[in-house]
């Protein structure tokens, strides 16, 4: 009995100190350090309020949603550069459909899902069956989606439809109990549809990766595609479906972005694919595949949003310092990551 429990404890500690989790801990730790720094410096002007914290989710929900699909693609050892373009295309379809053609936005969104998932599946099939590198395939997909965006319109189109306004305006306010009645928290903090979509996608992604056969196949393919094939796992189907799922996430991110800015523009979200990729990487996903965690991605998104928040609170720094800070942060994380992976592989030998 004692023996059994001790071995159980050992596996528990092994699980906790799993190299893929250490990255998540490092991300959480650095997030806490930066947050504590912000709290000390700007605590008096409202850095520590619930509103600031929730806004970190709200302002980056679309990147977060996209990062969920991206994490899965990266775990298979692939990459998808088309996500931002597909998200931009979604916004364009909604804007053009509702504004110019007068179609109900729900149908536009449905159509976007068909386009996005279709493109994802097509790219997945090209990557797997024609053996074209993912980087090139999805780059072509990106050019295609951006090109179609520009074909629809070169100018920014506003989205004004009561249905969209209702969705975007839907909020749940945080309230607390004061003197026998529920009062809104001051400063006002609320969660909206984007927040719920973001958290829901993270949870769904976590569930798929950890609790389903499909998720295990993803890890197996990323670990070693050849062995996965020899084990009889459906490599082709899994890879194609992962790109399809990423297409779904991109369209959902596009919907979230459309709700956030209420317009469609062919150049919106430029470089967004790298935001999604770097969020996943900061959260501990390895680009070589096989390692990654959805909770890490959540922390990665938060970490990337806390820096602009700090810069906003400072008020004197110009926004391009944000780019440099993000780059330095990325450098710190990949250094930790490389150190850990080098250390663990050395231990194995």
């Amino acid at each position: 009995m004692a023996n059994k429990s001790s071995s159980k404890r050992q596996t528990f500690w092994n699980k906790v100190f799993n190299p893929s989790f250490i990255m998540v801990y490092a991300a959480i730790l650095i997030f806490l350090i930066i947050y504590a720094f912000g709290a000390i410096m700007y605590g008096k002007v409202g850095f520590t309020t619930l509103r600031t914290f929730i806004n970190m989710f709200l302002d980056n929900s679309y990147y977060g949603i996209s990062a969920v699909g991206m994490t899965m693609v990266l775990i298979t050892g692939g990459i998808d550069l088309s996500v931002a373009a597909v998200a931009s295309l979604t916004g364009m379809i909604i804007a053009y459909g509702t504004g110019v053609l007068g179609i109900h936005p729900a149908i536009c969104i449905l159509f976007s899902f068909v386009v996005g998932i279709g493109l994802g599946l097509l790219m997945g099939a090209t990557i797997h069956y024609l053996n074209v590198p993912p980087f090139i395939t999805t780059l072509t997909g990106m050019f295609l989606a951006r090109g179609v965006c520009s074909l629809i319109s070169r100018e920014s189109l506003t989205i004004s439809h009561p249905w969209i306004d209702a969705l975007a305006g839907w909020k749940i306010y945080f309230k607390h109990y004061v003197d026998g009645e529920w009062v809104k928290v001051k400063p006002i903090a609320f969660i909206n549809l984007n927040f719920i979509l973001f958290i829901a996608m993270i949870l769904i992604g976590f569930f798929i990766l950890q609790r389903t056969r499909f998720g295990r196949n993803i890890y197996a393919i990323g670990g070693n595609e050849q062995s996965a094939k020899l084990m009889g796992l459906p490599v082709g189907r899994t890879k194609v479906l992962v790109y399809g799922f990423n297409g779904f996430c991109s369209v959902l991110a596009g919907v979230a972005y459309a709700l956030y800015v209420k317009s469609g523009w062919n150049l919106s979200l430029q470089g967004g694919e790298l935001e999604a990729i770097s969020s996943a990487v900061i959260g501990g996903t390895l680009l070589t595949g096989g390692v990654g965690n959805m909770l890490g991605t959540l922390v990665g998104v938060l970490l990337k949003s806390v820096i602009p928040t700090l810069i906003t609170f400072n008020g004197n720094l110009l926004s391009w310092w944000g780019k440099i800070a993000t780059g330095i942060l990325l450098l710190i994380f990949i250094s930790i990551q490389t150190f850990i992976t080098n250390y663990t592989t050395r231990k194995k030998i």
Partner: peptide
Amino acid sequence: NIQPIIATLVLMVCGRG
């Protein structure tokens, strides 16, 4: 020994800044 895509991503993000 960092992966090239990620290693060069650092300067890609920083460079314009």
